[in-house]
Nucleic acid binder design. Structure first.
Lengths: 198, 198
DNA sequence: CGTTGAATGTTAGATGCGCTAACATATGTT
DNA sequence: AACATATGTTAGCGCATCTAACATTCAACG
């Protein structure tokens, strides 16, 4: 991991630190992550990161931002092969949401928890809206609409809360703790249908 | 806050520390909480807590456990005045879930995030099941059943994921970040109905 | 090319936290 | 009254974040 470099300069330390941070966030969680660990992994001194980031928090924001881009890619890929605005497309989006949360729980948790102290960060908000916008677009089409009106917002939001809640219950291992056994795929399918019905 | 005491012994330092910890968790979040801060608030030296808790983490577990008891009380109170197994009873439980999450976001987040490293903690799991059991009982009655079978589990779980997700989206201020405006009460009501329909 | 300023790295150290060991004081049992 | 136990304090270790002062490399311009 700690690839000892022969050059004085790293080459792309910023990227190296972001990747090291991302891995550590997955391993130990954002709260247990330490700048020192990331430095050891990247093979630089503990003062080096401060040439690229304001502080520890900014390193986490960088990981978060990068993660949200992967999240967006995943959701866009999920749409392929499904008719625009079809129930299948919307269900596929739900699956990809769970998929991201469970494959990168550390980054997922970080991405949603970070807004609190960074409510001012416009870039994070914009990236969030780009992702949610993918859902809104499909839901609008599902109801045969060309744009996202208040009705669409009201019908899409419960879908978000459901997959969001399911994601947290899964990664926080609540189902395991309470000995609950649910077929996740069936649960997303059935309840997406129910939430869109009426 | 830092009530200077005149006696050498505190009286009930454990309770004092739990309360100080709870307040700090609400103020700064569990990750930013420090044992030293709690000691300052309780007016004792930084070594004192270790007579009552194994480590920092155990202080948080204590706050979590205490919080879950309040959570349980809140949900039981929510049932009063509603017919056993009625839709209104179930909706009231949903409201009390959101109520707890938004009034004590720090403790709420802590309670659900803590399982990860304390999956072994049986007391926490049992308390969690007591709370979820309140919901299961009402949902069983809603479907005219006397006990909680697999069907009941499958119909209750989506309700949990919805209010759980909504709670996190609210306390993480995602709706504010994305300029989403939703009537929470209406949303819980309408979608509880949809999830129970069929 | 060679010089020089900017970018990017290092070392040393200030400050603070978690936790432990050794010691001090109160409490309660006989 | 004497002693064991419970509960507090002080001092200090190891590690973390972050800064200041210094070192090395890069790159832009004569």
């Amino acid at each position: 991991m700690a690839a000892k470099r022969t050059q004085y300069h790293h080459g792309d330390l910023r990227a190296g630190l972001v990747e090291a941070t991302r891995q550590l966030v997955e391993e130990k969680g954002a709260d247990r992550f330490s700048v020192s660990d990331a430095c050891r992994a990247a093979g630089v001194s503990t003062a080096a990161p401060y040439r690229h980031f304001e502080d520890r928090d900014e390193m986490l924001v960088a990981v978060c931002f990068e993660g949200m881009e992967r999240f967006q890619d995943l959701m866009l890929k999920a749409l392929k092969g499904h008719a625009h605005g079809s129930l299948e497309a919307i269900i596929a989006l739900g699956h990809s949401y769970i998929q991201f949360a469970t494959s990168e729980p550390g980054v997922f948790r970080l991405s949603f928890g970070i807004g609190r102290e960074h409510g001012d960060n416009i870039e994070l908000a914009e990236q969030g809206m780009r992702i949610y916008g993918i859902v809104l677009e499909q839901v609008a089409a599902y109801f045969g609409k060309n744009d996202v009106d208040d009705d669409v917002l009201d019908r899409a939001f419960p879908l978000w809360t459901m997959v969001h809640g399911l994601s947290f219950l899964l990664i926080d291992e609540k189902m395991a703790m309470l000995n609950l056994d649910h077929n996740i795929d069936a649960m997303i399918r059935d309840n997406t249908r129910r939430l869109l019905a009426d």
